[in-house]
Amino acid sequence: MNHINKSVLTIAITVACFLSGCSNHAPPVARPGSINSKLEQLGEMSYLQVIDLKAVKRNQLLVVQAEINNSDDDNQQLFYRFKWLDASGFAVGGDESWKPLLLYAYQKQTLTAVAPSPQATDFKLVVQSPDNTGDLPN
């Protein structure tokens, strides 16, 4: 056979890209306004869960409060930081430092953060727990 059809070509390129690590496994789109839409999980956490997320503007600055729940019967470590975004979606104030947070067994812990400037109108909470499934964020 001297000719291959278009579908064979498509499959060949797709397989090649997959093997070469060019694959782009896009996570499912989170519902706007949901907690997941404000979260960036570096590997899905096994025992820690962000169960509440509130944001309010005080003294011109966005104040965010998140509640984290540890469902394990052992202590769990969380690393987190906030990304602050302006109305156009651009990052404001540079990178925050990663912060460690210890959660005792079955503890609910609240963490609060204040935006670095009045330009910050939106945020993302980036979280990572050493005990995670290693899956892509949901």
Partner: peptide, 19 residues
């Protein structure tokens, strides 16, 4: 069916991308 005129080129491209 639409025929692709250069089958050898397509396979070479795919294999080189993979490697």
């Amino acid at each position: 069916k639409v025929k692709f005129p250069y089958p050898n080129l397509a396979i070479t491209l795919a294999v080189s991308l993979a490697l």
